[in-house]
């Protein structure tokens, strides 16, 4: 246990982590996580926001620990966010991206895992284009694996940072109505958010064209809308999803301009939500495709704040996983 003085949050004390332990030493997804496991992470991250602002982070917490950012897909912001989080807690950080690794030479995922294992990394942050790849790695490495986005499966730290952003704005999460808009079908961000928000007793709506919002998703406890005008009415939070260009080539959406016409978020549509509604986006944004610049840059937008909470959430996750694997 580190010696620095943690702020007075429930998650900070080691006694409570006996009652609300991380389910495993890995963070592979939000599905299956209980509210009592989510809230301590948010509480801890809240305290890290304050520490980050006053530049007083506990740099000895992860001293001597090694974190490897293993990114099979390009991502500047998520990788940087994890790197910053780890460095603020004193960890040594190595960045491996696919372009430099031997994966391109035919090495399998499990060979990579064995190699990293031999290097004795403590924390492995993995982004991969295939759903389930971090889970596969987690079976074969001694390090704690953190899923930083796998295929169309989950992106748990994004959902946690979104939840913290919401909580900081409204003072609560439960009871809010949240609309997730766009390419829900191919979005790991949407899946993790649906799991988290439903377990925190939010009303969740998903809005998008039927080709990108499968009807069967209602089994996850969400309401399905295919019209922004209907779905946005009186919502507290709007989460916009990035529309990938390949949706157009795959014929799921005819064109970007048609998408923006019917499913883009502009000021007129934003006005249908509650006046206090918060606009979020996991980034990077396609301005003029899923979101209008005026909305993205408006006072109601929390998009920049999401970046700040992102670092804090990742610090909290690294903190708790490190404790979980050493208690």
């Amino acid at each position: 246990m580190s010696e620095h003085k943690l702020p007075q949050t429930s998650a900070g004390s080691s006694d409570d982590s006996l009652f609300f332990p991380m389910r495993t030493r890995h963070l592979l997804g939000i599905q299956g996580m209980h509210r009592s496991q989510i809230e301590p992470i948010l509480d801890l991250a809240e305290s890290y926001i304050l520490m980050n602002r006053s530049r007083k982070t506990p740099r000895d917490l992860l001293r001597g620990r090694t974190l490897i950012n293993l990114f099979f897909e390009d991502s500047t912001r998520t990788r940087t966010s994890f790197e910053l989080a780890a460095k603020r807690l004193g960890a040594d950080v190595i960045n491996m991206s696919v372009a430099q690794s031997s994966v391109n030479k035919g090495e399998t995922l499990l060979d990579t895992a064995a190699t990293l294992n031999a290097m004795r990394a403590d924390l492995l942050v993995v982004r991969h284009g295939q759903s389930g790849a971090p889970a596969l790695l987690a079976q074969k490495v001694d390090a704690s694996v953190i899923n930083a986005g796998d295929g169309t499966h989950e992106h748990p730290t994004q959902a946690l940072l979104d939840a913290l952003t919401i909580r900081r704005h409204f003072g609560r999460i439960e009871g809010l109505t949240v609309a997730i808009c766009g390419d829900v079908s191919h979005s790991r961000v949407a899946r993790s958010n649906i799991h988290l928000l439903t377990s925190m007793a939010c009303r969740v709506r998903v809005i998008g064209p039927p080709t990108l919002v499968p009807g069967a998703i209602s089994a996850l406890g969400v309401e399905v809308f295919h019209s922004m005008e209907e779905g946005l009415r009186d919502v507290d939070v709007l989460m916009m999803l990035r529309l990938q260009k390949e949706r157009m080539s795959a014929g799921q959406v005819p064109s970007a301009r048609e998408y923006f016409r019917f499913f883009g978020l502009d000021q007129r549509r934003l006005a249908l939500a509650k006046p206090s509604a918060l606009v979020m986006h996991p980034g990077p944004m396609n301005r003029g495709v899923e979101i209008d610049s005026l909305v993205a840059d408006s006072d109601q937008s929390a998009i920049q704040e999401q970046v700040e909470t992102g670092v804090a959430i990742r610090m909290a996750v690294l903190d708790r996983l490190t404790r979980a694997s050493h208690t």
Binding site: Q31, S131, G132, D150, G151, T152, H153, E154, R188, R191, P214, A216, I217, A219, L220
Partner: peptide
């Protein structure tokens, strides 16, 4: 197979 499980796992159905 298309359905809830495939959606949860993020696998093409």
């Amino acid at each position: 197979t298309d359905g809830e499980l495939a959606i949860r796992l993020g696998l093409p159905g």
